[in-house]
């Protein structure tokens, strides 16, 4: 089976006509030109190999991420889910000795192409990390405003920031809990609140795609439920890719699921199957996927 054949045709309606190979030349929205539209974008990963030094972590990855859907990446530990995710906003290449070959298209534009600034890519493709990591020297308010302040300076008025902070905190379902103490330190919140603060911080810069790397793995079930609710609401507006170890979570929040694994010991991780979440869980076409989602392996 070639990597191309592995790509399952997705039944999720796509807004933009499939921007794919060769579309980069006449693409209407070059990556370097950041409009704060906040519109959801599609991403296409084509024949991606990535790793560190001489070690390849993921090989021959082909993935379509549709706009306004939640795509879950599942698979056993060490199969390269996080590496793939970090390739999507060029965070992978910030590590020492990291490489990534192949194309990663954001609305048809290769984010690894020459002349594309990874800093600008990250303004459009935000990321929420596994461990809550609010800036410890900043208040709740400043944490949420940080992305805007540090990227565009203080040229916006106070009123503007107030609005942005409130909107982002409401979207992350944190506003009610912190609205009376916006100027307290972000680090004083509970773990679940900190993670929602980090989501708000990501939302405040109005990215088009949001990547989440096991956002709930350090949280209790109630906090997890709140974050899942936020994800549901955010799907209306954003393209979301979430890495999770929790298959129930993948089933609950995602419309598309991609299963990754290491097929043979010592081999890099590969993407085995992608499809609508319901069919991945109920009727996987690949035996390995079936074994994993039913709990026989991994």
């Amino acid at each position: 089976m070639t990597p191309q054949e592995r790509l399952t045709v997705l039944d999720v309606p796509s807004e933009s006509s499939t921007a794919q190979n060769g579309a980069s030349a006449e693409s209407p929205a070059p990556v370097a030109d950041h409009t704060r539209s906040g519109a959801a974008r599609r991403m296409d990963v084509i024949d991606l190999n990535a790793g560190f030094g001489s070690r390849t972590i993921i090989a021959n990855i082909n993935l379509k991420v549709e706009p306004k859907t939640v795509t879950a990446l599942i698979g056993p530990s060490g199969c390269g889910k996080s590496t793939l995710l970090r390739c999507l906003n060029a965070m992978h290449s910030t590590a020492k000795g990291a490489f990534a070959n192949g194309e990663i298209l954001l609305d048809g534009v290769d984010i690894n192409a020459k002349g594309v600034d990874p800093v600008l890519v990250r303004r459009r493709v935000g990321m929420v990390f596994q461990r809550p990591n609010p800036f410890p020297t900043m208040s709740i308010y400043d944490n949420v405003a940080a992305g805007l302040r540090l990227t565009s300076g203080n040229r916006h008025g106070r009123h503007y920031f107030d609005e942005v902070v409130e909107r982002a905190l409401r979207q992350a379902d944190l506003w009610a809990e912190v609205k009376d103490r916006l100027h307290n330190m972000g680090g004083a919140l509970s773990g679940g609140q900190q993670q929602r603060l980090c989501i708000a911080r990501t939302l405040a810069v109005e990215p088009e795609v949001i990547l989440m790397d096991e956002p709930c793995s350090a949280l209790d079930p109630i906090s997890t439920a709140k974050i899942e609710e936020s994800i549901h609401a955010l799907r209306e507006q954003y393209t979301i890719v979430i890495v999770t170890h929790n298959m129930q979570q993948a089933a609950r929040v995602s419309q598309t699921t991609a299963f990754m694994t290491i097929l043979e010991a010592g081999q890099p991780g590969s993407l085995v199957e992608t499809g609508p979440t319901s069919s991945i869980f109920d009727a996987p076409t690949n035996e390995v996927t079936g074994d994993y989602v039913s709990g026989r392996f991994g």
Binding site: G126, M127, T151
Partner: peptide, 15 residues
């Protein structure tokens, strides 16, 4: 992870 959080917001390394 604080550095990564900042970079992931599209903030430059120097900032």
């Amino acid at each position: 992870d604080l550095k990564e959080a900042s970079l992931a917001l599209g903030v430059t390394q120097s900032r």
